[in-house]
Design a binder for these strands. Sequence first.
DNA 1: CTGTTAGCGCGTTCAT
DNA 2: ATGAACGCGCTAACAG
Lengths: 342, 342
Amino acid sequence: MPESDSPPERRRPPTIRDVAKHAGVSKSLVSLVLRDPSRVSEKSRAAVKDAIDELGYRPSALARSLVSQNSGLLGIITSNAHDTFYADVLEGVSSYINASERALMPLILHGNHEEASESLAATRFLELRVEALMLMGSALSDAAIERYGREVPAATVGRWVEGETIDVVVNDDRRGGELAAKYLLDLGHRRVAHITGGTGNGAKERAASFRRTFEEAGCRPTIVPGTYLQAGGADGTRRLLETLDQPPTAIFAANDLAAIGTIDVLRRAGYRVPEDVSVMGYDDIALAALHAIDLTTINQPARQMGETAARLVCERVNSGSREGQRVLIEPALVVRSTTQPV
Amino acid sequence: MPESDSPPERRRPPTIRDVAKHAGVSKSLVSLVLRDPSRVSEKSRAAVKDAIDELGYRPSALARSLVSQNSGLLGIITSNAHDTFYADVLEGVSSYINASERALMPLILHGNHEEASESLAATRFLELRVEALMLMGSALSDAAIERYGREVPAATVGRWVEGETIDVVVNDDRRGGELAAKYLLDLGHRRVAHITGGTGNGAKERAASFRRTFEEAGCRPTIVPGTYLQAGGADGTRRLLETLDQPPTAIFAANDLAAIGTIDVLRRAGYRVPEDVSVMGYDDIALAALHAIDLTTINQPARQMGETAARLVCERVNSGSREGQRVLIEPALVVRSTTQPV
DNA sequence: CTGTTAGCGCGTTCAT
DNA sequence: ATGAACGCGCTAACAG
């Protein structure tokens, strides 16, 4: 039999030894050529470089990290690949990384908003010896995040965590909820609803301050549970339409994605936005600015938040500091055309 | 000065030796407990497990990969974090990975549609000894992709590549362009335009067959360059409006994102869609189905494409086969409300 | 100054 | 249940 247990024609990648043998030098010298060619004679250098090219040699980051005791890796765990808010945050991270001295390599793992898969991702990253961890809107528990933060510098974006070992970059969700409520109050809305982000990051704060602001004005908003996804906004809206005798005059959705789901359900049910119902979102993703959507929303500066978090955590990688910082970003009202006076 | 060259309080993570010492056994035994606890006496097992918990030990994937000669890593390079089409493809990849036996860990690196940053990503992945490479709509040259494919099983999604070492999963862009053209012809459109995806994957094929199909019907569509981004569609549309005496009756944009940009510009310029101008996209991303957008488009089954590519490349990892396969997926017309008879 | 040898880092494996 | 050797690249110490 030709071969059965060993797979066919799998070549091991060439090692530094292969290069050394091929070039007729020691492996130390090959290593030196790779790291500081100026300290090697021209002849040897050329021989080594030729050997590298001929063999198609690539140094193993695995072996290098093992000895150098740093992997150069930054582990990023995202909860939701479909939310372009985090795509913007990631752009901010890249932009900081590319501009920084000792650039870490930002690896991304999608958690798909499942706690189990996020915690698996974290475990794998830590086993890979990432030098820092960034969580983009995590479904993990505070305790879990803090545990990770004790092993390696960690930052969250859009997710509040107690505890001093974590860098936290969040917008002020309480303020955001208040901004939304005040704006709707100013427009004269009194019968309003909020579809929450469920257990999502910042959802409780947005909901609580939205409700409180309205209650201080003597109104009681209807609050129904939802998610940060389009489907969550759609489901919540359906529930509102079924439950209430008459629809609210304004709906504050958990975020832009959910607001889009909300608008979708409203229009399909025959309601006009904003003539019959005003709708607000949260985040101000690129989509929200589209003419076809043109959503009134609360802006969170995603790029800036990504940059800030990356900076904080990378500075801690370099300084070795164990103490996280918290940065509270001010949200801003963005008025577009999905809202109008009542 | 307190400390300058050595950072403060950075603890090395505990190693298998620390655990062994703590538990009073050899490191071989600790290793055994981790991999096959049943072969270790209850007493030793407990001692080792206690030590692991107390020290917070995590095995190093670096060291493990070095000796086992496989990293368990799958490197995924995406061109565009903002295009949810690829988010769907990634979901397909995850879904295959999670269901498969020896699950590779899918690491993602964003190339941000820059060739240099994609090729850096590939280099880093290969140095990390990923067992396979997946390119989601790459800006890399065919030659580069093939070179990588010689080092490790590689697959592309949405990107045609010549050469036998690559698994290629693409939709039939020629057919897609033809579908769009025929549909518009059927609607009676004769004065049409196409905004291309520029150098983007499949863009040439879509453009060529769109043009050919119209030319066979005796029409000559206006073709202007664009990109696969919203901005590309918007810019192309602006150019069309400036250049032409009268706007076309239908515009086929490079993809859905671009189509959204197109619609945006048209509406802002006072044209109604579809009454004045029909618009078509390509991809059928989730956005396209929204009531507010409701875009006529050509569907590419993103999830399925991701699953397929993951399966092909993972099977090659296991079999050691060097020969890639090509899978051509049939695109489908999806009629919504941005098109109407002329 | 150029190049070599030896040993390390961490987990696995195999013979004992 | 253990010690020694190994995988691959880096580095300190040393030799030419």
